[in-house]
């Protein structure tokens, strides 16, 4: 990075630190913050959409749809995250490849499962075996988003399901009395009012999601915790220009500060959202706002 970094062992501590903190490896650490934030930014809305769909399905009048919604929340919430990430993602990947295999290689005569191996034709590999590394990374990242969305969507579905039931019955009855049909009642009365009941549960989920990103490495996506562990580990002089003892504590302290700061920021934003959602609601919070106004 800097011109004086050619022989780090001769440097004084400040320059040494400057060189050390700008190695290619540290750059990967800094990039991984972006990866994590991007993952959160994409996953949160997608998971919410999954949750909304799940909750709506779970309270549907059509029995099979209701079974799907209830089954989704029950099964996904019941399976440990790490099992989900280890096996489900591989299964999902194989499902995509299987579909592509069926489409692209109709003339293939060998079995797809050979013992432990999962063999599809080369054109069906996802990403293709000769694709650039960044394509593999983007693909792994997309799988991670999808998996996170499915897992957290199940929890969100449960939260939203409860929130929909928490909307006072009187509100729905009034809507019916005004002649709104079911769809109108749902979209105009139920959904706008349920968020205030859902937000505490959803904010919990958001906090858990922020801290769940180390699971990413199971999918080959290198997140901040992975790099902190890798960079902080003991480095002996044979294998690096910057030998040091076990510094993981400092790296993790840095992560702690990052996560605490992020949590604080999230809380501030969530408080504001809560304030807006409470406005005009038939809750004690809404009542307090009305009186204060």
């Amino acid at each position: 990075m800097f011109s004086f970094c050619t022989d780090p062992s001769t440097l004084d501590s400040w320059r040494w630190m400057a060189c050390y903190l700008t190695t290619g490896k540290h750059m990967s650490l800094y990039w991984s913050f972006g990866t994590v934030l991007l993952l959160l930014a994409i996953t949160a809305p997608v998971a919410l959409a999954f949750g909304f769909a799940g909750a709506t399905a779970a309270r549907s009048r059509i029995a099979p749809l209701r079974w799907i919604g209830k089954g989704y929340t029950a099964i996904v919430r019941g399976v440990p995250d790490i099992a989900f990430f280890l096996f489900f993602v591989i299964a999902l990947d194989q499902a995509f490849e299987y579909l592509r295999h069926k489409v692209k290689c109709p003339g293939w005569d060998q079995p797809i499962r050979q013992g432990n191996d999962f063999i599809v034709c080369a054109e069906a590999k996802l990403p293709l075996g000769n694709a650039a590394q960044w394509l593999h990374e983007v693909y792994g990242f997309s799988l991670a988003v999808l998996t996170f969305a499915i897992v957290f969507g199940a929890f969100a579905a449960n939260v939203l399901f409860g929130a929909m039931r928490a909307v006072p019955r009187a509100q729905i009855e009034t809507a019916e009395a005004y002649g709104l049909n079911q769809r109108q009642t749902f979209w105009r009365i139920l959904v706008p009012q349920m968020w205030v009941y859902a937000l505490p549960g959803l904010s919990n989920l958001w906090m858990v999601l922020i801290k769940a990103t180390p699971l990413l490495f199971l999918l080959g996506v290198e997140d901040i915790v992975y790099w902190a562990r890798e960079l902080g580990g003991t480095k002996t002089p044979q294998f690096t220009d910057y030998p040091h003892v076990d510094w993981r504590m400092w790296y993790f302290l840095f992560l702690l500060i990052f996560y605490l700061g992020f949590t604080k920021l999230s809380e501030t934003v969530l408080d504001r959202i809560m304030l807006r959602l409470t406005h005009g609601q038939a809750t004690s919070g809404g009542e307090a706002q009305r009186k204060a106004a």
Partner: peptide, 19 residues
């Protein structure tokens, strides 16, 4: 997602193989 997965990397098929 499925559609994207099915089509996105198709353009890269056929070149040299990477281990």
């Amino acid at each position: 997602t499925v559609a994207l997965a099915l089509t996105s990397v198709a353009a890269f098929a056929g070149s040299h193989s990477v281990v």
